[in-house]
Design a protein around this nucleic acid. Structure first.
Lengths: 191, 191
DNA sequence: GGTTTTGCCTATAGGGCATAGGCAACGTAG
DNA sequence: CTACGTTGCCTATGCCCTATAGGCAAAACC
């Protein structure tokens, strides 16, 4: 029997692909093993278990997304940066629903160093965008939480099909939401 | 052997309590059976299966929450109504995290008549609150989606512990977010 | 080329989901 | 009040997923 040549990166990448294709709920050790043409116990030398596998996919997703946001924000400020950040998140969620769902559920399980690092990058991105607005220092955390909440809520609702049947397409609501968000940030503090 | 006296309502109520106590992930047919002092197969005459059980808990949660919002909104309009609606959601999520999580995940599984009815009530509540603002008719759907997204995102992030360690308490951010949301709705259209 | 390391295997145990079929506790009718 | 029919919870069973233990052979190293 020739070896399959597994390693942690390959296992996690396969898991991420499986989550995107079949849904985050289908992300199991057994399914990944099937996908790789290998028996389930073989994966336990590369990944500690189901929980760690999910955390690894979450970390991968957050890292990939942070990379995208890095590129998207380059050279932009103000409303342009806000829209770039937001669109990067929404596009990633649309392309990789399973990864994104895993990332969203992170924190509920294991929190390793990679996950924490990626989380920090995301927080930094948010604060960088806010720097393009005149939000008072003491209010920045509140503003960041507001932006994060809105993006997460909208993307999850859209992904869950909550806006699916309704008449005005979700895209339009997204543009409006970002316009309003921009207005909020522009006037924050000078109320 | 004396009978346990089960029925669908008791099963679903037990399931809801279990979800709140041990987390939505712990909501299994077996766990509910244990809780009721009964063997797992006994539940299948009252509930079709695990998926239907989760959907039933989601429907229960959405109905309970809609009842609360009904009471909270009575006699209020404008910012008062907005805050009442928002606080009712946040308080319910804090008191019943498992139920709330099940409600949020609904739509991913079965969608029965009860679930649809409860969903409609929630949409009506949102539109009722917007009626207290001068949002143009064509923009109401967008405004409703924005409000819904923000509430859901904030409550989920808070419940997931995203704001846990940070210095300004989540409560403060919540108040700020609702103030900004009120400002958005007041000026919507007259931009 | 022999030895050590490594990687994937089989075997096994436990738990959850779900269906099939049995038996006893209840409601009802004579 | 007894006999019957119905209903409710049971045991038995099979499948899938998780996880651990221990074996065997393919690489890697000297």
């Amino acid at each position: 029997m020739t070896r399959a040549g597994l390693d942690r990166a390959r296992v996690v990448a396969t898991a991420a692909g499986l989550a995107d294709r079949d849904g985050a709920a289908a992300l199991t050790v057994s399914a990944v093993a099937r996908e790789l043409g290998v028996r389930p116990p073989s994966l336990y030398s590369h990944v500690a278990g189901a929980q760690e596998l999910r955390a690894a996919v979450a970390a991968l997703a957050l890292t990939e997304l942070a990379d995208r946001v890095d590129r998207a924000l380059a050279g932009l400020a103000g409303a342009d940066a806000l829209v770039a950040l937001a669109d990067a998140h929404r596009a990633y969620a649309a392309e990789h629903p399973g990864r994104f769902a895993a990332a969203g559920a992170a924190g509920a399980g294991l929190v390793d160093a990679e996950l924490l690092g990626a989380g920090r990058r995301h927080a930094d991105h948010l604060l960088a965008v806010l720097r393009g607005y005149a939000v008072p220092a003491g209010e920045q955390v509140h503003a960041a939480r507001l932006v994060g909440s809105l993006l997460r809520g909208f993307i999850e609702l859209e992904g869950g099909g909550a806006f699916a049947g309704s008449s005005p397409p979700a895209e339009e609501s997204w543009v409006r939401a970002l316009e309003q968000l921009d207005a909020v940030l522009r006037t924050w503090g000078s109320a």
